[in-house]
Design a protein around this nucleic acid. Structure first.
Lengths: 348, 348
DNA sequence: TTGAAAGCGCTAACAA
DNA sequence: TTGTTAGCGCTTTCAA
């Protein structure tokens, strides 16, 4: 039987209210009583019953995160790092993190409804925002606190943090153009993902600025996995008129493209340039090291979580629409002259 | 203001006890009353207050999982898949999953204490069991329900599920020996991890069975990341007498070894054989595809979670010490004759 | 079949 | 400074 404040009250000869106050902190309690209570609590090994506290306070001190992923075999480092970020931030503020997984689709909202309706969490984090994102629409409608990593095209206002994908992709494309490439293939993410569109805009923008005609035969849609990257890359390299450079919308696909190139006996960084987006840990140690656009996912996770925690404290966010500049990371996969050593990095 | 059973009771003209019973299910309630209550509940948009229920029932219907990882940049697919497994299993049984991250070390137990003492979860899942694992010792001492993925060398009994790493590594090593290799390097995981020792035993065992002398200069310790694999591989390939085959204790390191080989102008699958352990998604699409030992992590996650849920229901596990046979997955990274097509697999 | 009432452990208003 | 008391929303005896 766990120790309750009643037990402490009995032993200290005071009321439970006094115990509660003493335990809580500063409110009007004689410091002598306070010390006595604290001492007894420690002796008896008291630990508050969190559920009782939650019921009383009508707060769960828990934030929720539903990982939007297809199938069991997801190994996208994005989620691992993001999770670590929000987990650590939440823990530092004594919040619990509730996690579940659910594939995007019609049944997805069920998961959100469950967390919202039954008040299992105080707020939610959303990632991989989508075209007319139903999750956002739902949470807005329910007036439920949340922060998104990613913007939306819904006609509503909500707090988010995003990376300027257009900017990042434009810089990356420009880099390839500067290297002399004109046939630059592009492996997109699914189009319903918001970031997919922003990045694509950046790609198109760079082509246009350099008067390079847009060639739709060079644009393929991928599913963000290394396998999709492999398939898309393979298809591109098998063309009668293959591209001299390939940009993948994320690193995982870019790794697949590198594999495809090798399978086609093309030397990446020499016969063909390959670039990605994200800068996952594997990018640096790929062979050759992968040029990419860095998103500091762990930090983003922390930041987004921090925004939500502020919101839950009733604070108003000083800036609820953050757009961060990503960083271009140049490595050997796009460099004709192979330099020894790791990547050099530069903004724009 | 959320709807409560009191609201429903008022509207239905019955007592809250009746409402509670009607909502709960089968207990003695007139079916007419029951239907009335259900109808009103639906109309009013009733959803139970989970915290109230938890306080009353003295159960949280939540299981906890603390990801034991160093640093923010962890992208080990192991955790993603495991998480998906336990998350889905838990969700199907209407359990919540509480996740946090904490690096192994002296402060690690704090995290466990918090979850246990304050009864934030009903049970815990442990992975990557270690030599004299303090987490297990603590949970046993507290008599707190948990299930581990991995065995332990503590002198206590606890429920676990494990993969027979010795068996798997022996089969893998034997495969390399069958290919004619005699200088087989081994990149280990940190020695305090239990699985590290089992796998190493399998490696030694295979050598011994084939009368191959153990050469400690071929055994290196790694930290399970691709970077460690790269460094270890590089060091091995720079030796005056390099190995003809390299086994890494996990796939992530094996991928690093492949990169190192390429950086040293060695062709994997031709000049040198490389093998890993886990069969992460990337293994199949590596260049060349990686020979490995498959652990069905997602399924393991589900299974381990299922065991815990049984335990929490007060059931006795029919088998609380499960040791599964892993499956050897042969791919091109260890095959001298490059065969077209994916891996062939065979257990033993 | 139903209702009244007693908690689960805690916080917080109100009195003393 | 302290105690009394009324809940938070629910489940579950015990009576009726």
């Amino acid at each position: 039987m766990p120790v309750t404040i009643q037990d402490i009250a009995d032993r200290a000869g005071v009321s439970i209210a006094t115990v509660s106050r003493a335990l809580a902190g500063t409110t009007g309690v004689a410091s002598s009583t306070r010390e006595l209570v604290l001492k007894i609590a420690a002796e008896m090994g008291y630990h508050p019953n969190i559920m009782a506290r939650r019921l009383q306070k009508q707060r769960t001190d828990t934030i929720g995160f539903i990982i939007p992923t297809f199938g069991p075999r997801f190994s996208d480092p994005f989620f691992s790092e993001f999770l670590a970020g929000i987990g650590n931030e939440a823990a530092e503020h004594n919040f619990d993190l509730l996690v579940s997984t659910c594939a995007p689709g019609p049944k997805e909202l069920e998961g959100y409804r469950r967390l919202v309706n039954e008040r299992r969490v105080d707020g939610l984090l959303i990632v991989r925002t989508r075209h007319q994102d139903a999750r956002i629409a739902y949470l807005i409608e329910q007036d439920f606190p949340f922060v998104a990593f990613g913007r939306s095209d819904l006609d509503v206002d909500f707090p988010y943090l995003d990376i300027d994908g257009k900017q990042g992709m434009r810089a990356l494309t420009q880099h390839l153009i500067d290297q002399g490439h004109t046939r630059i293939a592009y492996i997109s993410a699914p189009w319903d993902l918001m970031f997919s569109n922003y990045r694509f805009e950046g790609y198109c923008d760079a082509l246009q600025r350099n008067s390079i005609a847009y060639d739709e035969s060079l644009v393929v849609s991928g599913c963000l996995t290394d396998m999709c990257g492999y398939e898309a890359g393979h298809a591109l390299f098998c063309k009668s008129d293959p591209p001299s450079a390939v940009i993948a919308c994320n690193d995982l696909m870019a790794l697949g493209v590198i594999s495809a190139a090798q399978a086609c006996d093309l030397k990446v960084g020499q016969d063909v340039a390959v670039a990605g987006f994200d800068d996952i840990p594997l990018a640096k140690h790929a062979q050759p090291p992968l040029t990419t656009v860095r998103q500091p996912i762990y930090q983003i996770g922390r930041r987004v979580c921090s925004m939500l925690l502020h919101l839950l404290q009733g604070a108003t966010l000083e800036d609820s629409h953050l757009l961060l500049e990503p960083e271009l990371v140049l490595r050997k996969s796009t460099q004709l002259v192979a330099k020894k050593g790791g990547g050099i990095s530069g903004g724009r």
